[in-house]
Design a protein around this nucleic acid. Structure first.
Lengths: 168, 168
DNA sequence: TATTGTTATACTCTATAACTATA
DNA sequence: TATAGTTATAGAGTATAACAATA
């Protein structure tokens, strides 16, 4: 990804342009954005996403895929539709998501014992091994994102975020 | 209603899972996800995104487009490349973003006075009118997302998120 | 009739590589 | 040589509508 919002432009041209607009520090004006919770939420998530990628390298797993794998691990035998409802995506979208994980050998589409329309999803042995390696790494990554916050502040942050989700 | 998947699973694991899921609504087990900052961040952002959409309806503007429009408004005459760097997307991606906003009559690609390779972006009169209507709405929407937090907690939340972005 | 997985289709967001005009 | 905008291309993610098999 490209440089984020408040990065300096080190070129002479960039400095000239920036000076014309901001008069001083070579950054673009952001208007009301920095005061918005949504803007800061977005920036934190971009930072988290990038850090996640390097934390789970070289496994090429996204946070979304990790969530899907966790749900399958924790709810072995669930159907694609139920999984989709749980993670908030349509069942038609889930098809390609599982296609990818299955073609990588991480997830198995087993026949459902009581409903011949649906699959019983489960992790393959390789998927299980991967998750055993990934879960501690993801936890460590998550901690590293809030390493500058005290334990109390970390708990507060999660509490605030949960209250936001409810308020939505 | 879906049949509980672990209904006849005799193992301790299965029973634990079933108990976690067998509330009134059949919720699935989430494993370590609820303790992760990243998971709660993601959920808060999904809630915010949906609320944003209804807050700016019927204008069909996304948070990302709003950010681009703010940057153009606050830094009139900037180029597509500088804008891309500012919001963190590649200049090739920015082409279609501006195409859309231009075709909707919100943004103008004016010739740059000192560099014939680049455009000087600015809001059209219609874009200016839209932003005058949108900015108060977006601020109100943003406030509504944290309405259950005290002013002090809101300030703490933004502070925590900023410290996370730096830590990335 | 309703649901599950699927396909067809479409749109957004994202990137890299290569092209052109210009610097 | 380097940069700005563009195009071609690719892939992920998202959705709706319709279909066959099954409930």
């Amino acid at each position: 990804m490209v440089t984020p919002l408040t990065e300096n432009d080190p070129t002479a041209q960039g400095e000239r342009r920036a000076r014309q607009r901001t008069g001083k520090n070579g950054r673009l004006a952001l208007g009301p954005l920095p005061e918005l919770v949504g803007y800061n939420l977005r920036k934190a998530q971009v930072a988290l996403f990038q850090n996640f990628q390097s934390a789970v390298a070289p496994h090429d797993i996204t946070p979304g895929q990790f969530g899907v794998l966790i749900m399958i691990k924790e709810n072995e035998g669930l159907s694609q539709s139920d999984l989709g409802s749980a993670v908030g995506i349509d069942r038609s979208t889930m098809v390609a998501v599982i296609d990818r994980l299955e073609s990588r050998g991480l997830v198995v589409r087993a026949p459902s014992p009581n409903d011949r329309r649906s699959y019983a999803l489960r992790l393959s042995p390789e998927g299980q091994r991967l998750m055993e390696e990934l879960i501690p790494r993801v936890k460590a990554h998550d901690q590293s994102m809030v390493k500058d916050l005290s334990k109390e502040e970390q708990a507060q942050l999660i509490d605030f975020l949960r209250r936001m989700s409810k308020a939505g």
